[in-house]
Design a protein around this nucleic acid. Structure first.
Lengths: 594, 594
DNA sequence: GTATTATCACCTAGGTGCAAACTT
DNA sequence: AAGTTTGCACCTAGGTGATAATAC
């Protein structure tokens, strides 16, 4: 009858622009040729999707309620007005058994080990992730590079990149399933620079929150996509993001409550187009007029500090749309534009109503450069398509080997073949019949795969020189993506699309981790599983569902990992079909989940 | 890792007992013979399931957040401690487009027209719904009727009931789809009695809430089940309730926020068993020790007054379990015991944390006698099974005609065959191929169906005299189930299982509506569709999703209704297969629903 | 030509009752 | 024997990219 908004969104009248990388920060243009993309398949024990934990979350429990209705972030954030749909918080409950959000597939994917970026030639610039430029989408772009080709070089220095990978891959992480940003990633805290004074205070206006750190749980997967130039489908009805933004926090006060917000801001003032023949992105002109920026409040907000310390905050429900008239609270983006998601943590004022103005709250902003993406209505880079298909469980239907040969379908695997092959080929096949199609490789194919891998590396390598968007640089940062190393960045809302871009670039200068300094971050793969992070169980529920706690992990996790043979070892399809309904009893959460 | 509770539950240490009807209030024992139960199939335009509205809600939007964590209702309500799973509210959003909760199937079912209870011989006792007895579960039951057979008479005065139906059925409601409790139901406000003084103050400790009325949206469906003796499956992993409790409120202050809670309390201190040979319930002894009573807080709580005025609050996510060790916040019940769900509305204290003690809040309790049910681990009454299969979309797989003949499968329809046949037989077949199996009847079968109906009436009719549980009495109340006529009832928590039962019985005395006074309520069928209530769109989302607004109703609603031939006119399976994916574009919500 | 949209098959996730197996 | 548990087929609901049609 009335207008309830599905998504907890906040409209932001300001469209702060972020400038990534050094120059244009366009997505890297891998070769679209089907079957040329390198991929790696790390084996190791892979967490099984705790399917029922999802169901459990369906009942809605956790969070204490929050204020609803419209909120206006003065300049920075404007409440779009959201109506209750399903996930509105309903506190009243006490936490009991489940915790971390469960990620049916992403978790498993990450558990396979980190992905080595094809362009491992990486230059580890301190400010690589964010360019120091300051351009606002609405303002004249200093570059005026409309229709200027960017990042077009392809298959250039792949060999150098490839050479560097081996040494990094020596860490046991890959096969040990400690694929997620392990503790190692957080070992170099010195990178934590608060950025330019003026901007810093914007990004964090609360001293207490300076102790808060934010960790991107799905970093490895994001890295994989980032290396190819992440694309996100936007549709009129709204499309989920994949990978999903999943973050965890440390330094949280247990007695405090927090809201966790997400917004997605333009990276620059450009519109892009994809040159299929060159497999690269080109600047197609100035950005289209941006839709009012909306801030998506995580539906489980506010979180208790207790919850936030235990749970992963998953933004799996957020949807992206190109429909500016959207009334469902989805995030509105322009197709063929590049965006940077941002996470905001806000101290919850118990007695206050819904958040109306972020600037009036005590908050801190976190940015993960590896989550930059290009909004598209149809995938441009075929490798992105492949990676999506291989890593998103909902796209499993397209993994059919009939579509592409294993060699062609699992290019990423071959990238690290030399690293994975020996240990992978010895692994036992888990017996997952559904994924068996991808598991046809064996030692028989080792030589062939090796050759394929080399070819892939050749194709995927790219000159880091002139490319404004250098994945390796982001990797360098990401490998040090411990909360303490996260760059937090605030936007001055008053200037719709200005200032912030500069802030972004400044923030980028501190991204480089001294520890992994000169190495191609992507090649580090999953750091040694010092902290073999439990991959969050599947969470198809509204949000913040499930937990990586052992209790929420299916006993099937204890099964033998699938064969990790490089050819097509489900690196991105860990949940291809782990006994779908065969052994529900094996999954503890499937029992108590609902 | 930790213990997040899926469901927003509150533990209640008190197990207040409610005594329904006049004596024991056991479920009515219809003949289990497959194919003997009468059923009616009203045609009329049936609302189509707006499938995508569900998806929309998935993103979680609406409600403002609420406090979470454990709450202890001193005696009355104890917080069990719930962890966030999926539906925790995340305010921050302003209401925009969607409103009322969508019920994929129930709504459609109800839209078919009201069901006439088999035992239409109904006596319209003012206090029929609730007995005036006062027995507490923990106390010695005055009756001491262990193993005493109850409610065994069957097929008695069915003829009289049948005779009365025609006149009531004259209202166009049946075929006009105005089947839901129309406005007529709310026209007699004089029934609003606040119940016994002592109890009244318990049930409502806030004068402001005396103006609040609660309406059971799914009343018609509940009536159907209630007439047969509702059974609810409980499992170790938890089972949803069906029908779903869906309520709406009036008299709400727009500027106020409210929490809506659900608990389920024992009706009496007995354990039951089902005599298959007699198709009746027997008292099998005293009640087993009850598990701690939990109060389930609607995950969208707190609701803004604005929301509560527009939305239907749906408890579709709540799950029932027999696992006393449940850690998922599900409601724990004992199998073979009878229970009464209760709805509590609580004024939200903005600056307070999670609700810990209901008695410390300002609240009001509403009880719908037609929602009484027997908890079972397996269905006892085959007619309940049939009705579930026919009305629950998730059980559609069992509607296969191969299992039972149409005559046997749609017993309820034949009850009102004489009423429906003439108008139904002339209706056009909607062309729903999937439901065609149930639509095989035609004028050719009219005579046979008529005979069948008579037989059913014979079997289903029952003497209202000695039966403690008289569905017709409840119907009398239910037909007047306007919010103002709802019996609200509070429980004195301090006495675990006592007092309330008396309150219950007292409340029952006011149930009778003066307007429909002497008539068999069930026979009134759906009151004239003065207020052809929009059936809420499908809502598979967490809760309080969707709205009955025209915009959320699929355009397919405009299609010709299915043939309403009495034999098996999908009365309980309106969504048998309305062009599943064939014409998604027809559903406006499917576009914006996400 | 490029970009967007609608429809589709195919998948995940999970809610049904059934029926066999199990428990007491 | 009665009641409970478990695996199952079958369904709803909806998230995927492919593909063809459409819009610009």
């Amino acid at each position: 009858m009335s207008p309830p908004l599905p998504q907890p969104l906040i409209d932001s009248s300001s469209h702060a622009k972020l400038i990534a990388d050094h120059t244009h920060y366009p997505p890297r243009p891998p070769r679209p040729r089907p079957g040329t993309a390198p991929s790696c398949s790390a084996a190791g024990p892979r967490p099984r999707p705790v399917s029922l934990s999802v169901g459990t979350s369906c009942t809605g429990h956790v969070l204490t309620g929050v204020g609803s209705g419209d909120c206006d972030f003065p300049v920075f954030v404007m409440l779009l007005g959201a109506m209750p749909e399903e996930s509105a918080a309903a506190g009243l409950l006490a936490p009991t058994a489940k915790t971390r959000a469960t990620d049916f597939s992403i978790a498993a994917i990450m558990a396979r080990g980190a992905v080595a970026p094809p362009d491992a030639d990486a230059r580890e610039l301190p400010g690589d992730g964010a360019a120091s430029r300051s351009s606002s989408p609405d303002m004249e772009d200093p570059l005026e590079d409309d229709d200027i080709e960017v990042d077009v070089e392809e298959c250039s220095d792949s060999e150098s990149a490839r050479a560097s990978k081996p040494k990094l891959r020596q860490s046991p992480a890959i096969s040990d399933c400690g694929s997620e940003p392990a503790d190692l990633d957080r070992e170099s805290p010195d990178i934590i620079q608060e950025k330019p004074i003026s901007k810093a205070k914007i990004s964090c206006n609360c001293d207490e929150l300076l102790n808060v750190e934010c960790h991107l749980e799905t970093k490895d997967l994001w890295d994989k996509f980032h290396d190819l130039g992440t694309e996100m489908i936007i549709t009129k009805t709204g499309r989920r993001m994949f990978p999903t933004l999943r973050v965890s926090f440390t330094g949280i006060r247990p007695d405090q409550r927090y809201a966790v917000l997400l917004d997605i801001v333009p990276v620059d003032n450009k519109r892009y187009r994809y040159a299929y023949h060159r497999s690269s992105w080109l600047v197609a002109g100035k950005a289209d007029p941006p839709a009012p920026c909306r801030i998506y409040a995580h539906p489980d907000s506010p979180f208790s500090g207790e919850q936030l310390r235990k749970q992963v905050v998953s933004f799996e429900k957020v949807k992206l749309t190109n429909n500016e008239m959207d009334k469902n609270g989805q995030i509105v983006l322009n197709s063929m534009h590049r965006y940077q998601p941002r996470i905001h943590i806000v101290k919850w004022r118990e007695h206050s109503g819904p958040i109306t103005d972020l600037e009036q709250e005590q908050y801190r902003t976190f940015i993960f450069p590896e989550s930059v993406f290009t909004a598209v209505t149809a995938y441009q880079n075929q490798l992105i398509t492949k990676l999506k298909i291989d890593s998103n469980p909902f796209a499993k239907g397209f993994r059919d080997s009939s579509r592409l040969t294993d060699f062609d379908r699992e290019p990423m695997d071959s990238l690290f073949m030399d690293q994975h092959f020996l240990r992978s080929s010895l692994r036992l096949y888990s017996g997952d019949s559904l994924d068996a199609e991808n598991n046809n490789a064996g030692s028989l194919f080792s030589a062939a795969m090796m050759e394929k891998a080399r070819a892939h590396i050749q194709m995927w390598g790219r000159a880091s020189g002139g490319a404004p968007y250098n994945p390796s640089e982001l990797h360098a940062f990401l490998l040090n993506s411990s909360p303490s190393q996260q760059i937090y960045l605030g936007q001055r809302p008053s200037v719709p699309l200005g200032l912030t871009s500069q802030l972004w670039s400044q923030g980028g200068s501190s991204w480089q981790s001294p520890i992994h300094g000169g190495l191609p971050p992507g090649l580090l793969g999953p750091p040694p599983p010092h902290r073999p992070q439990m991959t969050p169980p599947p969470s198809s529920t509204p949000s913040s569902s499930g937990s990586p706690s052992p209790t929420s992990v299916s006993t099937s996790d204890l099964r033998l990992p699938k064969a990790v043979f490089p050819s097509s070892m489900h690196r991105f399809s860990p949940y291809a079909s782990p006994l779908p309904r065969q052994a529900p009893s094996l999954s503890p959460t499937s029992r108590s989940g609902h």
